[in-house]
Write a protein that binds this DNA or RNA. Structure first.
Lengths: 224, 224
DNA sequence: CCGCTGACATACTGATTGGTATGTAACCGA
DNA sequence: TCGGTTACATACCAATCAGTATGTCAGCGG
């Protein structure tokens, strides 16, 4: 009867000790707080108030505030970024360039439903602008996340070249950097103007730009 | 002889009381501190230490930290942004599109000489990402600065259409937003990677993109 | 020459910050 | 069942924060 009873064998949904769940709760709250206020202005006390936990819990799982921030990048921001921008790149029957355009289209559609995307922007971009010049460990983690993102786009462009959907004079890596820059800048400008219209307009122009990378003459059989 | 002597009529270069110069010194130091650390992490005490002034001086010229931040945007960030990006748009004998490309080229050349541009990025962008969601007065000031920037680019593109250097199907406002987004995103990615190479590569691709906006057939006389 | 006001300097405050020291209960192997 | 380790909670601390109250001196109008 008493909820404080501990059942030995059966796994209750809320066991009295669940360190991994506690850690995840801290990470999620920290991400939310950092996303809204930035890392430096993120308050430990506020994170703990959100979770209902205490400093004992936090400093048991993380050495200090910096370690918490690093973990947020490694385990939350990275995952969110990759699943949003690289998750749907490889499946589907379309060519690589069209897949890339569809990813952009999907984000445009998603942003219409989630106003936080236009209000708060991209968490990866936010953290980068704030922390890159101030903390090298932050910078390297954020930069490597960008590398995964641009790398995935570069791979897609390279596959597009191989399959004939992308012009052979396109440099996959340089173009990938350029495209990601356009995306991040777009979120920044839309956030500044609080304008979903700018966000969607820019993403449309980006899709047009991608269309400009498409190989002209349809070469149905690249190598006979 | 004594430097403390006060000459009544002649304006000495360093009069004992120079409120305007004091204000400017505070603004400059505040901009530097905010540029390096962000607004929220900018320390009033640190700004004062840089200037050699005290709180009495600061709170005599500015009501509070927010007012200081607003003044930095209005009087420093805006001026820097406009002089860098819109200053050289209207002169020169070239067509408007070429002038736009030259502005981008000049910044690329400038960034090679000033490493702070790639390390710290664009002050307008930094402040926007940090403060737009947190403070509406910040956001409106930053957003209006972006409007001046994109407006100048849109005007240039419109002039290009009028003079025949820009394709008539180009929407000046939408394209201006897109171009500025590319620029800001480029500074962000370069800052993340600490890479002057990425900065220059992206600006080159942007110049190529602008070239794509050029009207095909040279119409020497738009209206005979 | 007097007195008022502008232009600061000095010293202080309460709140908030990240971090720590200590206490304690749950869990697990022996 | 016992002892040690894990997983927290509580209470506290020094430092830093923005902001304020007060003091003081320069300059100028009268």
């Amino acid at each position: 009867m008493s909820p404080r009873r501990t059942v030995r064998s059966a796994r209750a949904p809320r066991p009295t000790r669940a360190p991994e769940a506690t850690r995840e709760k801290l990470l999620a709250a920290a991400f939310e707080e950092i996303f809204r206020n930035g890392y430096q202005a993120a308050s430990i006390d506020s994170i703990l108030a959100d979770t209902g936990l205490t400093k004992g819990a936090l400093y048991h799982h993380f050495a200090d505030k910096a370690a918490l921030g690093y973990a947020v990048v490694d385990e939350v921001v990275r995952r969110l970024t990759l699943q949003r921008w690289t998750g749907a790149l490889e499946n589907g029957g379309a060519d690589s360039l069209t897949a890339l355009q569809n990813v952009v289209r999907n984000v445009a559609a998603e942003s219409a439903l989630r106003p936080e995307l236009v209000e708060l922007g991209c968490p990866l971009n936010n953290l980068t602008q704030e922390m890159s010049p101030l903390d090298e460990k932050f910078r390297s983690r954020l930069s490597s996340t960008f590398d995964l993102w641009t790398g995935a786009f570069a791979d897609a462009l390279q596959r597009g070249r191989d399959e004939g959907s992308v012009r052979p004079d396109v440099d996959p890596r340089r173009s990938a950097d350029f495209i990601v820059s356009c995306i991040e800048g777009t979120f920044g400008l839309a956030k500044s103007a609080k304008s979903l219209r700018i966000l969607r307009s820019n993403l449309e122009l980006l899709i047009d730009y991608l269309e400009g990378l498409r190989a002209r003459g349809p070469s149905p059989s690249p190598l006979p």
